[in-house]
């Protein structure tokens, strides 16, 4: 038994961390999200392809690295740490869906190289509990509407979920931007009246839910880890009342609780990823639990991070807000906490 990463996995983590730190410093993210209407830099995206991060889990024939959920979690954690703007998680999940459906080698190769952005359109309403706006297919045409389609304006193709299965449609799309509190993640409403190709049954999406949950939890882990580290450095140097604020027990105990949450999320994320790679019967329960726990933990840790920084933590300029915003976005999407709780109960047989 071994929980630690293997040498290869460690190498992947270290090189991703170095690469992303150089490529996506927070100042650069500030600039991109304010000045580029796409919300990310396509040139930087192409370099992610060159590094092999976009085809991480794809077969070698399409230029992929044939790695597993653990390696995907490693890279997603680093993407979260750097709060990289762009659709990394969305494209990884779309690629997994395409790969699960079989075929489509050309599109997968374009995803792996960074030439194509493909995401999944699955939200049928803007608000939880709202009546679905409706999407239907007839005679090879897909008609209807989807909400919160990730980076729809930049996507070459979308994978659209319908009650009758998953359909692939190609750009251009009728896109209405839905600006949210998180400028590093772009969403849109898309109105479809498109020729579409049925590519998978509806249950293929359901089968990928545990991977989506574990993947989102891995990114949440990175988000909260970095916010926590920044805060830990800050409380050791920031002086108030003549001493570093990190010497106050009122903060120490909350930091200890934050550490517990970060490390517990780490255990849950990597155990879930390992269970997925090993077809372990606990995989569904482990993945749903990891996502539900990580969502709460990240919001709490990123919130504490702003609170412990005081006023400067509330400034746009410091950039801590990106972590809180990404945490809340990830918590709400990829199977919200409420959804994961239901899944966990079902998986536990309760």
């Amino acid at each position: 038994m071994r929980f630690e990463l293997s040498d290869d996995q460690r190498l992947l983590r270290d090189s991703a961390r170095d690469f992303l730190a150089a490529e996506f410093p927070l100042e650069e993210t500030q600039r991109v999200v304010e000045h580029d209407p796409r919300g990310f830099d396509p040139a930087a995206w192409a370099r992610l392809g060159e590094m092999g991060y976009l085809g991480l889990t794809l077969p070698a024939e399409v230029g992929g690295q044939q790695l597993g959920a653990v390696e995907l979690a490693i890279v997603l954690e680093e993407m979260g740490r750097a709060c990289v703007p762009g659709p990394y998680l969305d494209v990884a999940l779309a690629a997994a869906l395409l790969a699960a459906a079989g075929g489509r080698e050309r599109l997968l190769a374009e995803i792996a190289s960074g030439k194509a952005i493909v995401t999944i359109a699955r939200q049928d309403a803007a608000f939880a509990g709202e009546a679905p706006c409706g999407i239907e297919t007839a005679n090879g045409k897909l008609r209807g509407r989807k909400y919160f389609v990730p980076f729809a304006a930049e996507a070459q193709a979308l994978l659209v979920t319908t009650p009758g299965g998953v359909y692939r449609t190609d750009a251009p799309f009728a896109v209405t931007p839905l600006p949210t509190l998180d400028p590093t993640q772009r969403f849109a409403r898309v109105d479809f009246d498109h020729v579409a190709e049925r590519m998978a049954a509806a249950d293929v999406v359901a089968g990928l839910e545990p991977l989506a949950a574990a993947a989102a939890a891995a990114m949440l882990l990175g988000v909260m880890s970095r916010a926590f580290e920044i805060t830990l450095d800050y409380v050791k140097t920031r002086q108030a009342f003549g001493r570093p604020i990190g010497s106050f027990q009122a903060l120490q105990h909350r930091l200890a609780d934050a550490l517990l949450r970060v490390e517990s999320t780490r255990s849950a994320v990597y155990r879930a990823a390992w269970c997925l790679d090993n077809a372990d019967p606990d995989a569904a329960l482990a993945a749903a639990s990891a996502k539900a726990y990580a969502g709460d933990a990240a919001r709490l840790v990123c919130g504490e991070s702003i609170q412990m920084h005081g006023g400067i933590g509330f400034t746009w300029e410091l950039g801590l807000h990106f972590f809180l915003k990404r945490a809340k976005t990830l918590e709400s999407h990829y199977g919200s906490t409420e959804v994961q709780l239901e899944r966990a109960l079902a998986a536990a047989g309760l």
């Binding site: 038994m1 517990s264 329960l285 482990a286 749903a288 726990y293 409420e338 109960l345």
Partner: peptide, 28 residues
């Protein structure tokens, strides 16, 4: 009721993951 139960189940699964990690570290 189900939400309350589910939150406990989730936390316990995370505790199990911590335990598996500790066990693996002991084995290591």
């Amino acid at each position: 009721v189900r939400e309350k139960l589910a939150r406990l189940v989730v936390e316990n699964e995370v505790m199990r993951a911590n335990g598996v990690r500790m066990l693996a570290n002991l084995a290591d």
